[in-house]
Amino acid sequence: MNVTTLFDTPAAASPPIDGALTIAGLSKDFTVGGRSLPVLDGIDLVVRPGEFVSIVGPSGCGKSTLLRLVAGLDTDFAGEIRLDGKRITGTDLDRGLIFQDHRLFPWMTLEENVGLALLNSSIPKAQRARIVAEHIALLNLAGFEKAYPHQLSGGMAQRGAIARALVTEPKLLLLDEPLGALDALTRIHVQTELQRIWLRQRSTMLMVTHDVEEAVYLSDRVIIMGAKPGRIRRIVDIDLPHPRERSLPQLHRLRDEILAELIQPVPTPGEPENLVRLPVREAM
């Protein structure tokens, strides 16, 4: 069985029409110790169908929170999130999410874990086993169908989670540092694989990563976020055709540019740059 047949549909050749994400005036507060803590503030973002967008930003700036909101796991926010014009009010199979940790169910084999994603899908039951097997093979996990998650290495389990997220073919795939747990070599391999899958499936991708190199290699655009509260600081276009060569000098230049931007202190309006900000001051 040739695994590539799965994605060789005629539709894959033409540009995607589905999977447009619109975020407008999105704000999110958490209540911590009785006090309201703004985590996201005035996020506006439009992602085109089939676009690959990465988000980079300091730890705690609200990247995971943003993905959870888009996934529909948390519906308590201000503003609007729409997928293809439809307002998001909860989870749906048209959106997939890969968490930073694999989150495979420990009580199920790899095969059962991937198959469970199809429980409510419209794919006929007769075809599910084949589709599951194809996705397991796609992530180089053939032979481990009957393994329980604790019998897989961290990287294998994470690839299992990617297979599980892909099997439902969501219009929009949200990825929260999906490759963070992988070693450098596997990481490069899965990045290439991810790019290949994306080029075939043409679903919209929104990926959080700490790896700027990974972001510029895979994305059409890179969003740089700032913290406290989480805002979009800058959006960098990576206007290069896919698939890309890792060694492209433009990629390295863009990486350095983004890194420089990330290292820069956040300019706080109304405050002199060089003022040492004490915690007390910040709290006010």
């Binding site: 529909g72 796991l73 989870t91 199979l93 989150r103 169910f105 469970l116 409510n120 439902t168």
Partner: peptide, 21 residues
Amino acid sequence: RRNTDVGALFGFSRAQLLRHV
């Protein structure tokens, strides 16, 4: 929560969540 989130993501009903998660 890490497990129930996955169930929510795949649109599980209450009964499915009980049985599988």
